[in-house]
Write a protein that binds this DNA or RNA. Structure first.
Length: 427
RNA sequence: GGAUGGGUGGCCGAGUGGUCUAAGGCGGCAGUCUUGAAAACUGCUGUACCCGUGAGGGUACCGGGGGUUCGAAUCCCUCCCCAUCCGCCA
């Protein structure tokens, strides 16, 4: 969320940003309520002060009548305070309710536009899309022929949107995990396995809305836990309520997790195969930085994503996401879209990874701060996240780009140490 | 899951209803002394928020939440976490 004082002092700027993001939020109302809230807060504090003053004199008062008189005054002051406090608390929750709907500010270079049509291609990967001398199959067909993906089984045991990976697809999943984690370790990331459940307040801190009609999140009944949609949630939550020494920043983490998404409202949108599923495995990068490091870290995370897909030999493009498509927490977001030859009529770009700079938006809600040694005061850190590998989409890209005319799949050279063979299917 | 003991300021640790909302120690910072350093001595040493141009003043915070009271680290309720022992288990 944005800083409340900042919103009050920059109401017009925030309004404009909301418009560019396609978000409706009543900024004027927030300003009005916040002004009232501060006045109430002052009353509460003043009443508290006077009540404390009275309390202190009671212990010393010897005369019983005098003590009773002062007790009565103390009681009256506390009652007045309680009334003002209740007022204040009501205003506080009203202000907070508006505040959490306000999206982050936007990077000045982010393309302005209400949806992904305004996304701006900024770069291509090292490998150009392949020219096929046959009609490329899509991953569903390939997965079926080679007995790699069992969608029907997933549907039978769990429901639509679930799947079993089988045979070499399992090896591909493990190989992709190994490849990505090993690479990130050499880049100084600390690897972690992460809980697949998190408390709702952590989900909210990251910017998810657990529970509610439009939630993307599965929640656990009779508890405050939800299945995570991404390790971004747990990795960001790892430092919640912490004050980090500035010298220890930036912190670079890489987490392995399962991701669970209801995909509510996504019906009919690219639901074929394992492109949009309710559960998948992901290797996620996450960074905590000083405020003036986050732009550079964002480029750095994007470079790691490009490096991984260049090494895998998969063609892709990098897109600078338009303001209306950034979601709530991101200040700027780059997506990697891999070429998927089997998608649509003659192949399409499909999102495989994404990296966001969330500046202090998540840190403020999660309360992650830093301080310089020997200096007074703290500031909020900046948080960034990026997908190293989302397994299902990476597998789609591998199967479709590495397919041969006989229906076999060449294994990308960098994965062969873990897959243990250089070709899936075929002779 | 059962039993017991605990959760206090960066750390250790005292504090069981009111001499200001935390003793004492360690660590850290500054100073005195010293050629320099150490030792010794002196002072300072959290976070958030509010008011104020400023100096400064104030409110809240002793695991979380709620309660009793004029007043709670201290009493009551509840939840969480940690340690040890027992049981169970991959």
């Amino acid at each position: 969320m944005l800083d409340r004082k900042f919103i009050v002092d920059n109401a017009e700027l925030v309004k404009t940003n909301c418009t560019q993001r396609g978000v409706t939020a009543d900024i004027d109302r927030l300003v009005e309520l916040e002004t009232q809230r501060r006045a109430r807060l002052q009353e509460v504090q003043e009443l508290n002060r006077r009540a404390n003053e009275v309390s202190k004199t009671i212990g010393q008062a010897k005369d019983p009548a005098e003590r009773d008189r002062r007790k009565e005054e103390g009681r009256r002051l506390r009652e007045e305070k309680d009334t003002a406090q209740a007022d204040h608390d009501r205003l506080e929750s009203e202000v907070a309710a508006i505040q959490i709907t306000i999206p982050n500010l936007s990077h000045p270079d982010a393309p302005v536009g209400v949806d992904d049509a305004a996304n701006l291609e900024i770069r291509r990967g090292a490998h150009a899309p392949r020219e096929f001398d046959f009609r490329p199959r899509d991953h569903v067909e390939l997965g079926e022929k080679l007995d790699l993906i069992d969608l029907e089984g997933g549907s039978r045991t769990t429901g639509h949107g679930f799947y079993f990976l089988k045979n070499e697809a399992v090896l591909l999943e493990l190989a992709l995990q190994q490849f990505a984690v090993q690479k990130l370790i050499t880049h100084g990331f600390t690897p972690l396995t992460t809980p697949d459940l998190a408390q709702d307040r952590i989900l909210e801190g990251i910017g998810f809305l657990p529970r509610g009609p439009e939630t993307q999140v599965y929640s656990i009944e009779k508890s405050d836990l939800s299945l995570v949609g991404t390790a971004e949630i747990t990795l960001g939550g790892l430092y919640s309520e912490q004050i980090v020494e500035a010298e220890r920043l930036p912190v670079k983490l890489c987490g392995i997790s399962h991701c669970f998404r209801t995909e509510a409202g996504a019906h009919g949108r690219a639901t074929r195969g394992i492109y949009r599923v309710h559960q998948f495995t992901k290797i996620e990068m996450f960074a905590f930085t000083l405020p003036d490091q986050s732009d550079a870290m964002h480029q750095y995370l994007c470079e790691r994503e490009c490096e991984i897909f260049d090494d895998l030999g998969i063609p892709y493009r990098v897109v600078d996401t338009a303001t209306g498509d950034l979601g709530g927490p991101a200040y700027r977001k780059f997506d990697l879209e891999a070429w998927m030859p089997g998608r649509g009529e003659r192949g399409e770009w499909g999102e495989v990874t994404s990296t966001s700079n969330c500046t202090d938006y998540q840190a403020r809600r999660l309360n992650v701060r830093f301080k310089h040694k020997g200096e007074k005061g703290t500031q909020f850190v900046h948080t960034l996240n990026g997908t190293a590998v989302a397994i299902t989409r990476a597998i789609i890209a591998i199967l479709e780009n590495y397919q041969q005319s006989d229906g076999s799949i060449i294994v990308p050279p960098v994965l062969r140490p873990w897959v243990g063979k250089d070709r899936i299917g075929g002779a």
